[in-house]
Design a binder for these strands. Structure first.
Lengths: 352, 352
DNA sequence: GATGGTTTCGGGTACGTACCCGTAAATATA
DNA sequence: TATATTTACGGGTACGTACCCGAAACCATC
């Protein structure tokens, strides 16, 4: 029942190399003050023994704490979507704060690019050790991450990706496939001649996410030789009245819409419209497990919600930075989240 | 940038109580050799300071390793379902072996109760510190866990539950609700008059899982005032020929079956039958993300698979035991897993 | 009040790593 | 050759907890 000493530590390495523990330590941490010859010898022994540092002892002995910045949208009155990632961050922090890790949140306003830029530069001033961010504003994110690169700060994207950047990892949905799944669900009980409406409700102009989702959505029809008419509208205001106005207008032009796909979490406003205007038997699918949507899922106005585990995304992002900074191990460059299908019947067991 | 000393350790407790660290340690670990008076005083200070032991230091200093037994079915040629929990165990072990945790697997044969009993008693002989098991055989499991209770061994159920037992936790699906979700999906595009077939393929006689799933399945129809005819068959042999024979017979008696619900992972044999007998336009839903099923999901014979994250179940079970035994913290008594819906379109992103 | 036994407690070392500080050896400068 | 400077390395302590060992304090018995 004794702890098996399969693992060799610095002590054994030092013994075999005929040097002191301190010298081995210098080699391990790439510190100066070791001759090339002994450095080589020690590195060979490290490799030979497949030395794995004891994280317990390492973190216990180490005094400096690691600070991770979290740059995400503020939880707005409009949607509480970003509550979930925040919970994920907190959950991760709880697990690893014993190891001397700390997170600091920085919130920006989704309707104001400037706040993103401000918070981003605050992070750079602060002198953190790693960053997790949602790159909601593409150009600004690009500029920020370039600064991070200069300062050798690792950063992780969640929720949406900027593929060309040198991020440590992207953790989030495969948006194209997500739209594809939406189309499958929407058409599952649809007759072939029915009209379909795609709705995008969003203030932001450059909507990368939306484009990818719609592309996936349309691809499903192409791949399955379905020729349903797809009507689409963009609604630039997120309040109910604006949405209702647009919807009324669309239904006036196309009476025979049988299914609606909303490309983000604002599906509840459409649901609200359908309910108020007493329209029944219209399939409605949208995104995200937020309480506003849940209500309409429960009374059968929304048929399905698609969800990408926002809490888990943030949790993993923090853990990825921890892996990189503390353990020093490599991290998966792209971690696609599952495309979860939520219904009235299974939502109570949905986790995050 | 210094590690904030918000946390007080045994040293501070000892100082405040005017005793030595060793005495504080005795109190913390409920060891003998401390007078009631000082014990009380120390406990008060512990409470006052909200002392949280440093797990790093604790595990580093502790010499004894903790062994967890894992009692699950052997991966058979019939289904590779139990590969997933095994992976979950390994993933958990990898994470916590630094803390001196080890797992030992014990495999039994699903078609032979006696192997379960044998392996169970092996576990008791071995002198492990905790057990995770799939209670596939109810009576035998009950007897085994009673022994565990006598030996003060904590145990966790996965995959299916024995509610009346004093388990540390149950981690698995809510089977009733799972059947309920199956019904929802099956009827989503079904006309109201269509006949539905429920198939149970299983050697085991006492099939607790199956009964709960079917109950949930039928409840959906009741709750939604749907009066589709539901035909059901039990198939006691799991080989293709037996299944095909039964299926042929059922289709002979009921030509108008439009949808089939298989209550476990053996849905692929039914899929195979449908494909071979060239029956099209029959909705088919079953359980579990195993490669035999995936094939039929991809060529549209199976419409949906329902899945309960078997790998995650095992991972969490090991972690629950770790929590209990190492951290000493409490564990959720019941952890229902999400009821995941897998389709051709989203399966590539499904995790475990 | 000396002896033996029990209860209660403290000193001190170990776990494996990080890192400070001091010094011997090697090299450069005079 | 003597001295200053740099390079290379070892000793030793600290992190917070576990636990061994021994000793003081207390109690009972004759």
């Amino acid at each position: 029942m004794e702890k098996d000493s399969i693992y060799f530590g610095v002590k054994e390495i030092a013994r075999r190399a005929n040097v002191s523990i301190a010298t081995v330590d210098r080699v391990i941490h790439n510190r100066t003050g070791v001759s090339e010859k002994t450095k080589k010898k020690i590195n060979e022994i490290i490799k030979e023994l497949d030395y794995q540092p004891n994280i317990l002892a390492s973190r216990l002995a180490s005094k400096n704490i690691i600070i991770l910045a979290v740059l995400i949208p503020r939880v707005s009155e409009e949607t509480d979507f970003w509550e979930a990632p925040l919970r994920g961050v907190q959950r991760a922090e709880l697990e690893i704060k014993q190891y001397g890790i700390q997170t600091i949140p920085f919130f920006f306003d989704l309707s104001d690019k400037e706040t993103f830029v401000q918070q981003a530069s605050l992070i750079l001033e602060k002198g953190v050790h790693g960053v997790m961010l949602s790159p909601s504003f593409i150009e600004e994110s690009r500029r920020f991450t370039e600064e991070c690169q200069k300062m050798k700060l690792p950063y992780v994207f969640i929720d949406s990706n900027i593929p060309e950047q040198r991020s440590l990892s992207y953790i989030g949905p495969h948006l194209f496939k997500s739209g594809y799944v939406g189309a499958k669900l929407l058409t599952y009980r649809l007759k072939s001649r029915n009209k379909i409406l795609v709705v995008n409700i969003s203030k932001e102009i450059e909507n990368y996410n939306y484009l990818q989702i719609e592309e996936g959505f349309r691809s499903y029809f192409k791949d399955n030789q379905m020729d349903n008419t797809i009507v689409r509208i963009d609604i630039k205001e997120t309040d109910y009245l604006s949405v209702a106005r647009h919807m009324t207008s669309v239904f006036h032009d196309h009476q025979d819409i049988e299914a609606i796909f909303v490309t983000n979490s604002r599906v509840f406003t459409v649901a609200s419209f359908l309910q108020n205007s007493k329209k029944k038997n219209i399939s409605l699918i949208g995104y995200d497990f937020i309480k506003e949507n849940l209500q309409y899922l429960n009374n059968n106005v929304i048929d399905f919600l698609i969800c990408h585990k926002p809490e888990e995304q943030a949790y993993r992002a923090v853990m990825a930075l921890y892996q990189k900074l503390v353990i020093g191990s490599s991290v998966e460059k792209i971690q696609y989240m599952p495309i979860d299908i939520i219904t009235k019947e299974n939502h109570e067991f949905y986790q995050k």
